[in-house]
Amino acid sequence: MLRVEGLETAYGLSQVLFGVSFSIEAGQVVTLLGRNGMGKTTTVLSIMGVVPARRGTIEFDGKPIRGLPSYRVAQAGIGLVPEGRQIFPNLTVRENLVATAANRGGSSDPWTLERVFDLFPGLRERHRSFGNQLSGGEQQMLAIGRALMTNPRLLILDEATEGLAPLIQADIYRSIVRLKTEGLSILMIDKNLKALSVIADGHYVLEKGRVVWSGDSAALSGNDEVKHKYLGV
């Protein structure tokens, strides 16, 4: 579904990615792991076309998407839940969900307000509140809901549980599991190895802009060296 090959990205003179390669198959949940500053978010922003990639291949459904403006990448079917949530503060919860909703892929069972409220019941009660009146957890749910309303075939979650209380985190993880069982492909950046090894099928560990290890959850759980050396646990 998504194939990234030899991706190189730089901010001005400082190169951040030195040939990142990984892939996601349809229906899979894959994670990008690594300490802060290793290039996880830059990888995601390069895929989305928010930050221009210098070299490498990015293919979505077999079609090259590198160099496309970000709205074209989104229209191709990739939904990004960005780090820091970035919901629209001057729109209500309902408006945040409806404003950019689309079904460009022609999904037979598209996301609706009802389905989003069903996934995140807390949002239903607050549908008239403005984005800046929500708690961090509610904002996060709204950010996920907003991405789902574009009916993506690949959902990218960048630090979707960062800074949230453990109970709220558990809610978010549960919703991700539910999305997975519904067949959505997901790329996750997250720090909670325990939760990730339950949810995800495959993992890629980034170190200084390169993939230094990849494998499934069982391999990761058994590999203390990788966990210690690259993830600091």
Binding site: M48, V50, P69, S70, Y71, A74, Q75, G79, L80, P82, Q86, F88, P89, N90, L91, E95, N96, V98, A99, T100, A102, R104, R146, A147, T150
Partner: peptide
């Protein structure tokens, strides 16, 4: 209207409205 929502969304965060699929 939905048109106005996109307009207001782009006012608050232009890059974000692009990344969600709207120019």
């Amino acid at each position: 209207s939905r048109f106005g929502m996109v307009l207001r969304a782009a006012k608050s965060n232009e890059a974000r409205s692009r990344a969600i699929g709207f120019s």
